[in-house]
């Protein structure tokens, strides 16, 4: 069993070489490798033999028209959707499709949801305390918090700029602050891979800017996968972008390249759109895609 698994890990599918991502000199540089992943709901194929991979320490943006399968990809990485076929190999060996959700966190995967998912009646500090406690044995949850843990919480609050709010009830935070708190709850767990579903949705321009800087600082030390619709934000902060369309990878590369890719332009603008517009000019791609999806 282990032998077979090991073989599968070292045999990277050829498609990875074709799209140029994830295949380094040795495979130990790949933190996440999605292989021939197929998911369908009620006969509608959402992900279609998708191949996708990320390296350690990489920040990747995932874009694509509505219904492209972005959220489904994240759901399947975090065990929320079970695939029909295919594998998701994480951190050199674990097949994520066979894991329970709460175990994935222990493996080092953190997920931020689209709408802020926090504990509204606890204080900001207690939110992080709960998030941090997952490594403890259940018996130690009855004791007090260790000073090392409390230092870790304060450092994380510093990182997400919520130190002043530590003792406030999280439900009273603004939308942007809630999003940062949720990111803080992930950071305090020190994950290897962070998955973020539209982290700047509903934020003001200033908040988006701040979130972008936060993401960059997070991305300097760990792998981050961001699903985002806001093209201005993507252009500003993304280095590598993967475009998903109809459950497959349509294009991959830096933003410049991807924007000029005629396939991408077609996918975003739908059938019959004039060909001289680029993604760059369409800051609200969702509106233009209904026909294309």
């Amino acid at each position: 069993m282990i032998g077979r698994r090991a073989r599968q890990i070292f045999q990277t599918p050829a498609s990875h070489a074709a799209n140029g991502a994830g295949l380094g000199a040795a495979d130990d540089k790949t933190i996440l490798s999605v292989e021939k992943l197929t998911i369908s709901f009620d006969g509608f194929t959402v992900l279609n033999e998708l191949d996708f991979s990320m390296k350690y320490g990489e920040m990747r943006f995932l874009i694509g028209p509505n219904g492209a399968g972005k959220t489904t990809l994240i759901d399947s990485i975090t065990g929320k959707s079970k695939p029909d076929r295919g594998r998701i190999v994480f951190d050199g060996g674990t097949d994520l499709t066979r894991q329970q959700e709460h175990r994935l966190v222990r493996l080092g995967i953190g997920r931020k949801f689209q709408t802020p998912s926090i504990f509204g009646s606890l204080t900001v500090y207690q939110n992080l305390e709960v998030a941090l406690g997952f490594r403890n044995r259940i018996t130690s949850l009855f004791g007090g918090i260790r000073s090392r843990e409390s230092d870790r919480i304060m450092a994380t609050l510093e990182e997400v700029a919520l130190v002043d709010r530590a003792s406030e009830v999280a439900g009273s935070l603004s939308h942007g602050e809630k999003q940062w708190l949720e990111i803080g709850m992930l950071l305090v767990q020190e994950p290897k891979l962070l998955l973020m579903d539209e982290p700047v949705a509903g934020m003001t321009r200033r908040e988006r800017e701040k979130t972008g800087e936060l993401l960059q600082s997070i991305g300097s030390t760990r792998s981050v996968l961001v699903v985002e619709h806001d093209m201005e934000f993507v252009r500003r902060f993304a280095q590598t972008v993967t475009v998903l369309h109809l459950g497959k990878v349509l294009s991959e590369g830096d933003m410049e390249t991807v924007q000029r890719d005629p396939e991408v332009v077609r996918a975003y603008l739908g059938h019959g759109a004039s060909g001289n517009r680029t993604v760059a000019e369409s800051s609200q791609p969702r509106r233009g895609t209904a026909a294309g999806v």
Binding site: T78, E101, H102, V105, R111, S117, F119, L122, V130, R135
Partner: peptide, 15 residues
């Protein structure tokens, strides 16, 4: 209390 507020987040916090 956290489970009352958002059980999903508790699950995705590793519990």
């Amino acid at each position: 209390v956290a489970m009352r507020d958002d059980e999903n987040r508790v699950r995705f916090s590793g519990y």
